[in-house]
């Protein structure tokens, strides 16, 4: 465990001494802020209409109408930022030869992969922490319920974990960062749009496509529901990607 933390810590530090951490967190903060403002205007309009009785919903709920869609929008931010986080993790070590240090140190492959994953997750955690500012405003000036917000954050953390573990796997396959970044982005995009054609297909295909979509599983979390079905999906997705990464690193050894 100490080894894992040592690697995670080094990984996290290296994000912050390079521009990556600042670009990722800055971009995420701007986009989240923009989504927040636009949803806030919308919420304002709807609650005004409800107040004067011009149709609209009978009750307006800040969780349902603002926080929940806001969380769902975060997947767009992740699509663009997380490839930047993972693209260099393995590629850079392979290119510069530091991978030799890790592979000849008394560490298991699992420790190395898990350490890198935790490092990326910590950066992502910092990115999510910035969004607490906006949510904080809602608590200061409104009265949203906090348990659904907490569930939403759990969902976001798990969804980000899926993207990160997948990106880590792609990065372990190449020594070129740009290739790693582009391929990761393409794979993320595919997982994001995979259920767009779901409604045009038969019930079985529809079920499969919806189940595969990383974003689809966030819906319940965003609404404040922690369903074991989605929990199992996210955790097994992460575990499988990390497993593939370990295998990729190991096979690289055999092939030289």
């Amino acid at each position: 465990m100490n080894n894992v933390l040592a690697i995670a810590q080094r990984e996290l530090k290296s994000y912050f001494v390079s521009p990556i951490a600042y670009i990722v967190i800055g971009f995420a903060a701007i986009m989240f802020g923009y989504f927040f403002i636009s949803l806030l205007y919308y919420f304002d309009r709807v609650s005004l209409q409800a107040g004067v009785g011009f149709g609209g919903p009978e009750t307006v709920n800040v969780n349902e109408m603002l926080i929940s869609p806001l969380f769902l929008n975060v997947s767009v931010i992740l699509l663009f930022t997380l490839p930047m986080v993972t693209m260099r993790t393995y590629s850079e070590e392979k290119r510069s030869g530091t991978i030799e240090l890790l592979l000849t140190a008394p560490l298991t492959d699992v420790q190395i992969v898990f350490g890198k994953f935790l490092g990326g997750l910590a950066l992502y955690g910092a990115m999510l922490a910035v969004t607490l500012v906006h949510i904080g405003f809602l608590f200061a000036f409104g009265n949203p319920e906090w348990p659904p917000v907490l569930a939403g954050y759990v969902g976001l953390l798990l969804m980000g974990g899926c993207f990160l573990s997948l990106g880590l796997f792609v990065s372990s396959l190449t020594r070129n960062q740009i290739v790693a970044g582009m391929v990761t982005f393409a794979v993320f995009l595919l997982f994001w749009v995979i259920n767009w054609i779901a409604s045009f297909t038969g019930p079985t295909t529809q079920g499969v496509l919806n189940y595969l979509s990383i974003v689809e599983h966030l819906n319940d979390f965003a609404r404040g529901v922690i369903d074991t079905k989605h929990l199992v999906y996210y955790v097994s997705f992460i575990a499988f990607s990390l497993f593939l990464t370990v295998r990729a690193v190991d096979s690289e050894r055999w092939r030289g």
Partner: peptide, 23 residues
Amino acid sequence: PETPPLYPEMTVRDYLTFVAKIK
């Protein structure tokens, strides 16, 4: 190794401390 496995962004002391941890 043939090319010393150094992380360019770390100071020598930080680097060696990291190596001490993983070893």
